[in-house]
């Protein structure tokens, strides 16, 4: 049971980081990005090729370095941000609404095809493996307590990200991003460089996706095309929507509900004899239905976005009210 709890919490922290990143792009800047899980995957792949070293043929992939895990994580985040910069430069220039979504959807499927088909990149469908308990030796952590160490690491990174996002949320930068979401023509009329701001948000969000992926790779110790699907992003969207788009507490609540509650509760449903896979199929049904129902009946989510409430009472406030 403890082991189980540890794995749930570790995953929750990792998905929390990813969801907070996507919230920058969709929750604040307002772009429905379907390439997001591509940045997660790239972060995971890059972490592996930077840490696991060379392996004998027929296994092949780029780099094959043996960098320390923390360095690899930083480089993985940087590569996710670089990819987001390239895609964002193209897709955010002129495209909005569904056109932006469609192009990013295309981008992630191209990445998925490359990862699966182009073997020299990340070893194709076989994928990469061999990142076992990074930093364990250096820190002298034994095999049994490593999972607790990694849980602590994931939670620490999550809290750091949460703290940064709460700063961003209440900053002028965060407010300016929201103005793009609400009306970008007005934002431009009042001096905002829409393209730059959106690009910054996009790269920042993708960086957090890459960070989530880098942790995920270490948690799984391997990564391949069956460990991710381009549309995994939709689950992150469901979490943000259910919890409260734009509200970082809401996003975390959404991750708890969607990943922990829905995923874990379906895990314990009994299999129906003769119909394998039913329980596995229920999960996306519930998530898909939650997406539709929340968009329809509670688009602001369980914890709506919070705004600055001014409590200073100017002397003549009431007298002047219209």
């Amino acid at each position: 049971m403890t082991q189980y709890l540890v794995s749930v919490l570790t995953e929750g922290a990792i998905f929390g980081i990813m969801a907070l990143g996507l919230n920058v792009i969709w929750g604040w800047s307002g772009d429905f990005d379907l390439a997001y899980y591509g940045y997660v995957a790239l972060g995971a792949y890059m972490t592996l090729v930077l840490t696991i070293g060379r392996q004998p043929p027929p296994v092949q992939y780029i780099l094959g370095l043996e960098l320390p895990y923390p360095v690899a994580v930083l480089l993985a985040v940087a590569s996710a941000m670089a990819l987001a910069l390239v895609i964002g430069l193209i897709a955010l220039r002129h495209l909005r609404g569904i056109y932006f979504s469609i192009v990013t959807l295309g981008a992630v499927y191209v990445l998925y095809a490359m990862a699966g088909q182009f073997v020299p990149l990340f070893n194709g469908y076989q994928g990469l493996s061999g990142l076992i308990n990074p930093m364990a030796d250096a820190l002298g952590i034994d095999f049994n307590s490593y999972q607790y160490f990694f849980l602590g690491l994931a939670i620490a990174v999550f809290l750091l990200v949460y703290f940064f996002m709460s700063r961003v949320s209440s900053s002028r930068f965060g407010l300016a991003l929201r103005s793009l979401r609400e009306d970008e023509r007005a934002a431009a009329a009042f001096g905002r460089d829409i393209y730059r701001l959106k690009l910054k948000a996009y790269v920042l969000g993708a960086g957090l996706g890459g960070l989530g992926g880098a942790l995920f790779a270490a948690y799984l110790s391997a990564f391949n095309t069956s460990a991710w699907a381009p549309l995994e992003t939709v689950v992150l969207y469901a979490a943000i929507l259910v919890g409260g788009r734009g509200n970082i507490r809401g996003v975390v609540l959404g991750v708890l509900i969607v990943y922990v509650l829905i995923e874990e509760s379906t895990r314990f449903l009994p299999e129906i004899p003769g119909h394998p896979g039913i329980v596995l199929a229920l999960r996306p049904i519930v998530i898909g239905a939650a997406l539709v129902l929340f968009l329809r009946f509670r688009p602001q989510g369980l914890l709506p976005e919070r705004h600055y409430v001014d409590r200073v009472q100017p002397a003549a406030a009431e007298a002047n009210a219209p």
Binding site: S101, V234, P284, V292
Partner: peptide
């Protein structure tokens, strides 16, 4: 009067639902 982007997202959710109902009925 929902913005069309929101409906677009909802149809993605619908796609998840229908695909997996088919999985339940016919197997994956």
């Amino acid at each position: 009067g929902t913005p069309t982007l929101v409906i677009f997202i909802a149809t993605l959710g619908l796609s998840f639902v229908i695909q997996n109902l088919l999985v339940i009925r016919f197997g994956a």
